[in-house]
Design a protein around this nucleic acid. Structure first.
Length: 384
DNA sequence: TCTGGGGTCCTAGGACCC
DNA sequence: TCTGGGGTCCTAGGACCC
């Protein structure tokens, strides 16, 4: 799913299943690792904390990206110099290489960052404050590199003769609004240095929480599927409580593999959702509901490859109660969930609900997992 | 035999209100 | 021949992001 520059040079394409390049892996030329979410989250948190010490305002945009507000910084120091300082601090403190792009809007900053990554001569930092430099770079980049322009929009834009990022920047915003949507017209404005996207220092509260996984081995028995669904519900509810929210809506979905031979392994996918009468963050409420929903979409005789759950319709504690149903007592529920969350801490699996199963034979394969250097005691690196 | 796991925003259309 | 004018809420689907 993610490849180093060297792996790309070997011709390994995005999303190629490992078994298709097994020869390369066996040859020792390529090292492949299973996804290690705990490690990535921890390293990311260290980088973000460092950034917060270096800049007056930071928006953590994703696990490996952040926007920094440099208002005022340019009065004191050269911006490229500042970028270099960010780079070297993170390199020294955490050992992670980062690239820095500087520009008046987020969309331009993303392009600057792209340039910093691509042209190693830049030394990892590209300052795009200058209008002429913005236009020069945009003329060199295909429109598909612009943040918010994906495959479908690229095809439509190309038909209109818009091929480079600069072509898009020079398009008429009103025309783009009419041809596409307000999203595209904002992108045009951002490419012209007019900011349409504020820095979001506080992460907005989530609107939905999904927990899903592909199984290590196909599931053919309903009890295993119930275990998996219960496990996902439990994870989702844990996230929900961390957000300090309660949810009303639950969806359950499952599917067989879309890749296998349809003759031998027929395709089936389905999903179903329903609402609680009273919003909740209690794992038990959602597990019992989820098992009932599963009953309705489960079909015997299929080899299921993946399933998951989604929570939505969130409230922060204030919600419309039911006129007819009595309000369930919430105190005991909260106390129990708090104890469970504390026991489980950041790791998983100290206490769990019986319906989550004990062996979990179906769970994700991670045969090539890298050590969890910073989140697991047994994986702590040793200094000799 | 083997193919990831999360999210958000916008729009159109249906259903409803006065 | 011609059938108002102003709203809200919800959902599905499409597009995008990492």
């Amino acid at each position: 799913m993610a490849r180093s520059k060297e792996a790309k040079a070997l011709g390994i394409k995005m999303g190629v299943p490992a078994f298709q390049i097994q020869d390369l892996i066996d040859s020792g030329k390529v090292l492949a690792c299973s996804s290690n979410y705990a490690l990535y989250a921890d390293i990311s948190a260290r980088v973000m904390t460092t950034l917060e010490q270096l800049a007056p305002a930071v928006e953590v945009y994703s696990i490996d990206e952040a926007f920094l507000d440099l208002t005022g910084v340019s009065n004191c120091v050269d911006l490229t110099q500042f970028g270099q300082q960010v780079r070297s601090t993170i390199q020294q403190w955490i050992g992670i290489s980062v690239c820095v792009g500087i520009a008046p809007t987020k969309t331009l900053a993303k392009l600057a960052n792209h340039a910093a990554k691509k042209w190693t001569k830049a030394g990892g930092v590209v300052d795009l404050t200058n209008k002429e430099r913005q236009r020069k770079l945009m003329s060199l980049l295909p429109v598909s590199e612009v943040w918010g322009i994906g495959g479908k929009l690229t095809a439509k834009l190309n038909k209109l003769g818009i091929n480079t990022a600069l072509d898009l920047a020079d398009a008429e915003p009103a025309f783009m609004r009419q041809q596409f949507s307000v999203v595209v017209s904002r992108i045009v404005q951002e490419l012209n240095g007019e900011s349409c996207s504020e820095l979001e220092q506080v992460a907005p509260t989530k609107k939905e929480i999904v927990s899903s996984r592909s199984f290590g081995e196909r599931i053919i028995c309903k009890q295993h599927m119930q275990e998996a669904i219960s496990e996902y519900v439990s994870r989702a509810c844990q996230k929900l409580r961390k957000e300090q929210q309660v949810a009303k809506q639950l969806s359950v979905f499952l599917r067989t593999s879309p890749f296998s031979d349809k003759e031998r392994d027929p395709y089936y996918a389905n999903s179903i959702s329903t609402s609680l009468v009273t919003p909740s963050a209690d794992t038990r409420d959602f597990i019992s509901l989820a098992v009932k929903l599963l009953d309705k979409i489960w079909r015997d005789g299929y080899r299921y490859a993946k399933s998951g759950v989604m929570l939505s319709d969130f409230y922060d504690g204030v919600y419309q109660g039911s006129l007819f149903e009595p309000e369930p007592p919430s105190y005991q529920s909260k106390a129990l969930m708090t104890v469970i969350d504390k026991l489980n801490g950041s790791g998983k699996g100290k206490v769990w609900f019986a319906s989550q199963g004990i062996k979990q034979d179906w769970s994700m394969k991670r045969g090539m997992l890298s050590p969890q250097y910073t989140t697991s005691w047994v994986d702590l690196p040793e200094a000799k």
